[in-house]
Design a protein around this nucleic acid. Structure first.
Lengths: 339, 339
DNA sequence: ATGATAAAGGCGAACGTTCGCCTTAAAAGA
DNA sequence: TCTTTTAAGGCGAACGTTCGCCTTTATCAT
């Protein structure tokens, strides 16, 4: 009801004690007489007092904010991750008294400067990084600065830092094992360029699964390119135009967008998806279930990852050494009609 | 390089002036001798000084934060909006010296309390609301509190507040006019429940277009239900099972998810989409272009909306009366093979 | 009665800014 | 020469907390 800001002093005046006492009582750092307690609580209630967060942070010397920035996807790509990931971070942060501060993603040299500025201006107590790859300059920088951060995704193995990641290799392995179990022998994979750590991780699962079943991994079945519809389509057309005895019967794509490209290519060649050609994607984009036929895919526990990132980061920020500094989460295979 | 926090006093000591002078010089509020200026700038550079944002906000009595909260979509739905909308807000906010503060979305009674807390604790200077509908309690509350906010979406017409919205009626009208232009006469619409303002707005465009062309809007062609795949599919099956002379030749869906449901239904009945039955969606979800056939849809200028929301809100927060308190943005029709 | 102990709460200081007003010395006007 | 103006910068205070230490009064054991 009160329009103007209510401070500790207002509460104190009304309760007839000093404002510092009110502070201590509210923070449970002081014993007071029951009737004093009552008066203070009444004053707080009646005035609708809420501690001013800025002043509190000022005094604490920190911001209780977690910096987070993400690469905006180009038009035509989906970031179905963001909603889940950010929501779960925000929620988990709220529980432990933090907020998430999104800031604009910068490319190149300016990127590290953005992080430096946020640190120096006291805007954040720590960072969650996403879109991490090999040699990530942010990781190098934050390690050198000894500033708390958690990466969603791994980077160079020789760097020691806290991360949360999804076991991409396990996801692909599961999918390929499923295909092998269904009798497929000629299984191709639509992979990503060699400089993608995520891509290499997921590819490794394919190699592992094939090898475990004594299947020779024919080099021609491993195609690399950007993870777009067009690339997925082109790669698949190439595969489908191989001689009949070498043409793959199953295709694993490292993301759903490529898998959808593969579906388009199969349709162009008149193949029935799921029967003539099995296709499995990765990410389990929300649309995957509505495709025709519905696309099998590997689902990642994104919300769980967001929660873990925050949990880990807050432990680091507050100086508690967390039980595990590296968290690897297991994805799950969702089988639908495409495979 | 310096690990510890650098304050105005550190800079002042190094430059040999008082710290208040440094403050004024850096804020351009004071004339000093050129050589003093030089010394200050050098000290700032060498120490890597950045003003502490918390202290600055403390002094200013405000947070330079914009509160934003969104309804997390249930699994299986996409929030392809969020990335664009939030990114553009964050970017625009950064330009004018603000940050966006995401906070957990609460349902029911707790929702307004969340807003009240954020205000009272001085956490935010204003709000951007999304998922606005009729009788939105947040709008009622914020109007009564006279706290600055901008709604992304309209609400009760009798309430006077700042909003940015996309002209849904115009979008649907454009789409339906296109269908009429292509010779369609029996055009059905998959609409939303009557309590959805967005749904009613979009539906109005359909009615307008039909009426403008003297086409009777057959009540049986207006179906209402939740905007899900299943509902879209069921509605379409119902429509396709009408007698041949009453069966619609075109279907307009109020979102892409329903449109995809319609596509599934058409396929089940053995119809060729785009030829036997035209389908147009709304939202232009990223996947729409990759469907088979690619789905025509109405694209909304989301990034523009995000920018406008921030621009408008900051004007309100800073007491500048903006040139227009209501902004209606035009969507555009993207024609693909489904229509 | 007397000193020790505990309970209840007051008080000053500090976090890092910005703001308004004051002081000093040099320059300009008479 | 004396007063007035201007330039350059100093200084105290305040924003709303929390923290540590101090004071007062009542309680207890001796």
């Amino acid at each position: 009801m009160t329009a103007t800001k209510v401070t500790l002093k207002d509460v104190a005046a009304r309760a007839g004690v000093s404002y510092q006492t009110v502070s201590k009582v509210l923070n449970g750092e002081m014993q007071v007489a029951p009737e004093t307690m009552e008066r203070i609580q009444a004053a707080v209630r009646e005035l609708g007092y809420r501690p001013n967060r800025i002043a509190r942070n000022m005094r604490a010397g920190r911001s209780f904010m977690i910096g987070y920035s993400w690469t905006q996807t180009e038009p035509g790509q989906v970031n179905h991750i963001l909603d889940q990931f950010l929501s779960s971070m925000v929620r988990e942060a709220g529980v432990v008294g933090y907020y998430v501060l999104p800031f604009p993603f910068q490319e190149g040299k300016a990127q590290v400067e953005t992080y430096r500025d946020l640190i120096k201006s006291g805007n954040v107590d720590g960072f969650v990084l996403s879109s991490v790859n090999y040699h990530d300059p942010r990781i190098q920088f934050l390690l050198k600065q000894q500033f708390p951060f958690v990466a969603f995704g791994r980077s160079n193995p020789e760097w020691d830092f806290a991360w949360v990641d999804i076991d991409g290799a396990a996801g692909t392995r599961q999918a390929v094992e499923y295909l092998i179990g269904r009798g497929h022998r000629r299984i191709a994979i639509l992979a990503w360029p060699e400089d993608s750590r995520v891509g290499n991780d997921r590819l490794q699962g394919y190699l592992d699964a094939m090898q475990a079943d004594q299947l020779a991994t024919e080099p021609g079945y491993i195609l690399r390119g950007e993870g777009t519809f067009e690339v997925g389509r082109a790669m698949t057309l190439h595969l489908l135009d191989l001689p009949a005895d070498r043409r793959p019967t199953a295709i694993m794509a490292l993301n759903d967008t490529m898998a959808i490209g593969a579906m388009a290519a199969a349709r162009e060649r008149g193949l029935t998806i799921g029967t003539d050609l099995a296709i499995i994607g990765f990410d389990d984009a929300p649309m995957a279930q509505y495709l025709f036929p519905p696309l099998s895919s590997v689902r990642q526990p994104i919300a769980e990852a967001g929660r873990k990132c925050v949990e880990l980061l807050v432990a680091l920020v507050e100086g508690r050494e967390p039980q595990q500094r590296q968290v690897l989460l297991q994805p799950s295979l969702i089988i639908r009609a495409s495979s």
